[in-house]
Design a protein around this nucleic acid. Sequence first.
DNA 1: GCCGTTTTCGGCCCGACTGTTTTCAGTCG
Length: 572
Amino acid sequence: MKNKQIAEIFDQIADILEFKGELVFKINAYRRAGRAISELAEDIEDLWREGRLGEISGVGKGLQEKIGEFLTTGQIAELQELAQHVPSGLFELLSVQNFGPKTAALAFKELGVETLTDLQRVLQDGSLAKLPGMGAKKVENIRKGLEFRLSAEERLSIGLVVPIVDEVVAYLKKVGPKIGRLSPAGSVRRGRETVHDIDLLAETDHGADVIKAFTDMPEVTQILGAGDTKGSVILNDRVQIDIRAVPAESFGAALQYFTGSKDHNVHLREIAKKLGYKINEYGIFANDKKIGGDQEEAIYEKLGMSWIPPELREDRGEIEAAQQGHIPQLLQQEDILADLHVHSVYSDGQLTVAEMADAVRARGYRYMAFCDHSRYANYANGMDEKRLLKQIQEIKALNSKMKDFVILTGCEVDILPDGTLDFGDEMLAQLDFVIASIHSGFKTNPTERAIRAMQNPYVDVIGHPTGRLISRREGYDIDVNAIIQEAAKTGTALEINSYWDRLDLSDVNAKLAIDAGVKISINTDAHHPEHLPMMRYGVATARRGWATKGDIINTLTVDELKKWQKRNRIRT
DNA sequence: GCCGTTTTCGGCCCGACTGTTTTCAGTCG
């Protein structure tokens, strides 16, 4: 897919136009189109071939031509042209906080600053400070921004951020003066797989006191700003947290406003304007008279639509759906009855079968499946048939002693480089549940191998189908559409692996699969009880993919699962 | 550059904080 590349080019064009001081509306048009394209579920090349580029919101005639140009020639002439008279490292430079397009243009014109290294130099030798409008504080803020930019990762995985959010929320509830409702907002609330920073919203009549408690937190290593209603800090030199303090009568409006996404909000405010309303973080207003703001639901209601779950707020059609009352009842954590991919000491898990089963049961699930690695995965202490048979016996013995909880026998069987499975059908037939995964030979026909695995009637699920690791690698060179088509054809489920660094399928791919009628299995792939709570990230990812309860096999009871499998296994 | 149940031209979402200003521009979200 070239979606990301094209989105990035539009964003770069916007950066350059901004640097040049062009009309802000033109700049925004490029940014908006870029975001819409990067959020697109479908392959933009397909849309282009089918003449459907105009369906992308914010993409008009001019940008359609540019997309066509890129897909035909591999470049966009306008970008090459524009890039000639701007700093070579412009996009990096603009990623430095407090160093915006105006300052960048000034530093380029007067001092020849083209790269981050140049910026570092002019900060050190004092030449930046001598430019007009550059006071000591401004220069210091740019220096801090550069420092943070050089040390921090671009985006943080949700699994690293959510525990921090939970801690900060707990801390503020304890020490924060007179805080009522306190909620994450922004991309954390939307359940995105990675986030740039953390947004919090506090209900209070004592904003300044709350902001002070916030900036006084022990983990704060830098205060970026602190007013009566807004504070911004960096925690442990790593992650930025912003907080907004609002009175009760504005909390709902502020929650809506700060949850975003930007495109979702812009779209909403356009609708509001047409209806004669104004929305801001303090409420929804008709002729300067406030008609709502305490509850988030009221904002949507006044705009003539149903409430939209935060995970859907990306302006990918959810607003139109809400206007028509077509927002589906999304999957909820409580719908999940089982974790179907858990490891034990039989392969690379850290606890015994009994210990791990206790931990899973303690989370309130009704049943589970152990899917330890097969022998080919010897780096993970993969089981041979003998050990797997022993595990089956152990699980049977445990089941006979347990009430109200069932352990399914299973295996995460390796898809071998030649496309066959690590165990034969005789072995697989003895298992309740089978996940097939690729763990090696990522570059050796992964698509064909996964397709062949799905054609095996005993394979229920393809584990972590695209093989990506969010912080480390792109994933296999796999044709996701082909995988989805075969999954639909064979009745095989695809996994959303909830491990924070995987979230594979991604939300976008999950939506494609669900739209094609493919069932999804959401699992933690837990090797330790600490991993079990990560189910929430998998659920959030599924919700972002518009998943309902009916799309997810983990919501089935054991009997229903068996029925689903039987249908599944009858196929040829 | 996009877009239309007030518009095919003339709009385009809205506000907080900071610093360097002597009334506001720049940056950010």
